[in-house]
Design a protein around this nucleic acid. Structure first.
Lengths: 151, 151
DNA sequence: TTCAGTGCAAAAACTTTGCAGGAGG
DNA sequence: CCTCCTGCAAAGTTTTTGCACTGAA
């Protein structure tokens, strides 16, 4: 755990230097909270979480830093169709996609090697340099086990 | 063109009846403007467009109606990662996905039969009844032709 | 020392809600 | 006639901006 955190710090530091951004304590504070956050979170979720834990970082800085962290690929930026921007740690995690239950909001992660292949194919074909993708499937889960909180 | 509009009206009417929603002139007015809108639009874009063309339909009604139109599959709801909810006519159109240039914002539509296959596979595997998906690829377009408006 | 980064609050952008009046079934 | 739908404006959410101060390089 300690190791993970340090490696992430290193990666972020490297990115900041490369982009000629300053190394500030606030930025690493945001990184730490983001890595510890369990699951997907919005910028404001993180702000509240940090506020609760007596951190003094402002909203503006959090928004700014999350953007940086997404750019240097420590976080993944997600959209589940509800108009909110969410983030999730992508540090030391396998690439994955999401299946979202439109009844209960449950989000199931899955991986499919085929998806990246399609991404590469299309980028090649259309002359794009790939910079990520977003793939969400929506549906209704049939078994009550994972769909008990019907809205 | 006339035909297209009438068929769309019919489809919407059928949907409204089935869901026991009322047939109102405002709802069809929104449908007409949505079908005529060129490309992707947000709810507020449509409101402004309608306001300009002397329509009196309110924001609340537009938001409400777009939701209905998305549910009955006359419109597709899209998210391109900028936190805005956009719609686009899906009436009489082939299913397609999007490749978005992160430099200039250009959106290129593409189709790949493989995507729907993956969607079906995953839904089967995880016991979901499919209700759509969203697949967006982000990248940088290399040729200046389609990337002239760098932000 | 210099200027990017920060906190704060205010503003902006988008969306939802409450209420009273109006129209569809 | 009974509701559902609508318009309007107000409130709510999430995100961005302006400004003066602070601290990294």
């Amino acid at each position: 755990m300690k190791l993970k955190k340090e490696t992430a710090h290193e990666q972020f530091k490297k990115y900041l230097k490369q982009k000629k951004h300053r190394i500030t304590s606030e930025r690493f504070e945001v990184l730490d909270f983001a890595l510890e956050y369990n699951g997907h979170f919005g910028a404001d979720d993180l702000y509240i979480q940090m506020k609760t834990k007596k951190s003094n970082v402002s909203r503006a800085t959090i928004y700014n830093t999350l953007e940086l962290l997404a750019n240097c690929e420590l976080l993944a930026k997600r959209n589940f169709g509800d108009g909110l921007t969410r983030y999730e740690s992508s540090f030391n995690r396998k690439n994955h996609d999401h299946l979202i239950c439109i009844n209960c909001g449950e989000i199931i992660e899955f991986t499919s090697t085929k998806v990246q292949k399609i991404v590469d194919e299309m980028c090649n074909e259309l002359g794009f340099e790939n910079a990520g993708y977003s793939f969400n499937i929506f549906g209704k889960c049939k078994d009550s086990k994972s769909c008990k909180n019907i809205k």
